[in-house]
């Protein structure tokens, strides 16, 4: 069972994020393009939301295909469509 509600792959730039996203999608692995949560980075930018159970597999794919990423981090954040806070 995953330790966190959500897991994110963080990147140095969007080029690396796009390469990882395309690879994961073509491998049939769930990935969702996401803004990087504030709790994980102080800078706006693209991250990939992934399933906790795929983390180890994704690390293997990244190593195998030499895909760049900064880290894979877990976070207990929620997506609440009734919060009605818009920024």
């Amino acid at each position: 069972m995953a330790e966190y509600l959500h897991y994110y792959i963080l990147f140095q730039n969007h080029t690396d994020a796009t390469a990882m996203y395309r690879t994961l999608k073509s491998s049939g692995i769930y990935a969702q393009i996401s803004p990087t949560p504030r709790e994980l980075s102080v800078c706006c930018g693209v991250s990939l939301l992934i399933h906790g159970e795929d983390v180890e597999h994704i690390k293997e794919i990244a190593a195998d295909k030499k895909l760049n990423y900064l880290s894979i981090d877990g976070l207990n954040n929620t997506f609440d469509n009734t919060r009605h806070k818009y920024g």
Partner: peptide, 15 residues
């Protein structure tokens, strides 16, 4: 602004 937008995007789109 960077601090609040990811949360709003999560609530409105990723939900």
């Amino acid at each position: 602004l960077c601090a609040v937008l990811p949360g709003a995007i999560g609530d409105v789109f990723m939900s």
